[in-house]
Design a protein around this nucleic acid. Structure first.
Lengths: 160, 160
DNA sequence: GTCATAGTACTCGGATAATCGTTGTCCGAGTACGTTTGG
DNA sequence: CCAAACGTACTCGGACAACGATTATCCGAGTACTATGAC
């Protein structure tokens, strides 16, 4: 079980975009900040755009920027946008193929093993849905007060 | 993010083994119960054996059986045995490659994004660690009282 | 001097390979049982 | 009749392929800016 690596990149990029409001940042610059492969990060940002988390503008002075307020972007939103909506544990309803299996019943709901795995994963999703980008940004600014200004300056410096 | 499919098979097989105590059940029979590929299920049962969850005996009248009491086998134990111990979200510490990155600090602990993902996943693990095979068996017996006897009879019938 | 126009550089976007992990299969090592053979 | 040895069938165990998803890369469509030339 391995989550798509792009989730980490997307989360960090969204946090950085919070500190660069009112401007579009190209994928190449966001990638250069962490020395990431630019083309691949671009692919992830495209997924965020399709999900309505970012908005993109092509051409010179173009790039990506947040499409919503940070308070309205949950960590789960980004995970789903990059990693897909499917659950990790997928009940294949093997009880149906066993003796006494019924073709009509939905074993995803009746099977107690499925229920156990499902509720655990649902709570995981709930926790990630409660955490917003704004929360993370606030914690970073409280823990490392210099980070926002440093980040802003780094991107400004690259701009020249 | 997709969990190994064998986890579901392993969980169901362990529950079935609870109803067949004092005897070794070969992988082929456990697979036939759900029409699963026998050789591949065997592979998963091997992993459970390596983890100390099952004990195996080769030769005629051989097979697998629980190595511990069902109360001492958590769902997490089985997940870890089959799917591996690695976490789904793996912080690659990209902050180190960014400006102001330090080579000595452990960003898995300081990075707030990593913390958020980590605690959510830790809670997920905690929940699965609290659920034992005995719990699931008890719930099944309470919800479907006929299942244990039916299962036992099915395996006995195949034995002839 | 001013405006229109052509050119250029830059950006996203999707289509296209390479790599890794999961899925699936196979054959060999070892064990217990049944059978046979000698005493 | 009894016991020991042999052969056979069955099981796990790990090594070996096939498939699919993730990872990575590249080129084309479109846009805004810039430079140039005509009026």
């Amino acid at each position: 079980m391995k989550m798509n690596e792009g989730v980490e990149w997307a989360l960090h990029s969204c946090v950085n975009l919070c500190w660069l409001p009112e401007q579009a940042v190209p994928a190449a610059k966001l990638a250069a900040f962490y020395n990431l492969p630019a083309a691949y990060l671009n692919k992830q940002l495209q997924a965020l755009t399709r999900a309505g988390i970012l908005s993109s503008t092509p051409g010179p002075k173009g790039g990506f920027q947040l499409a919503r307020f940070p308070e309205q972007i949950s960590v789960l939103d980004i995970v789903v946008a990059i990693d897909g909506p499917d659950e990790a544990f997928r009940c294949s309803e093997i009880l149906r193929d066993g003796p006494g299996g019924n073709a009509t019943t939905d074993y995803r709901k009746t099977c107690l093993i499925s229920q156990t795995m499902r509720t655990a994963e649902l709570n995981w999703r709930r926790e990630l849905a409660a955490a917003t980008i704004a929360d993370i940004v606030a914690k970073v600014e409280r823990t490392f007060p210099a980070t926002p200004e440093n980040t802003r300056r780094w991107f400004e410096g690259l701009r020249t």
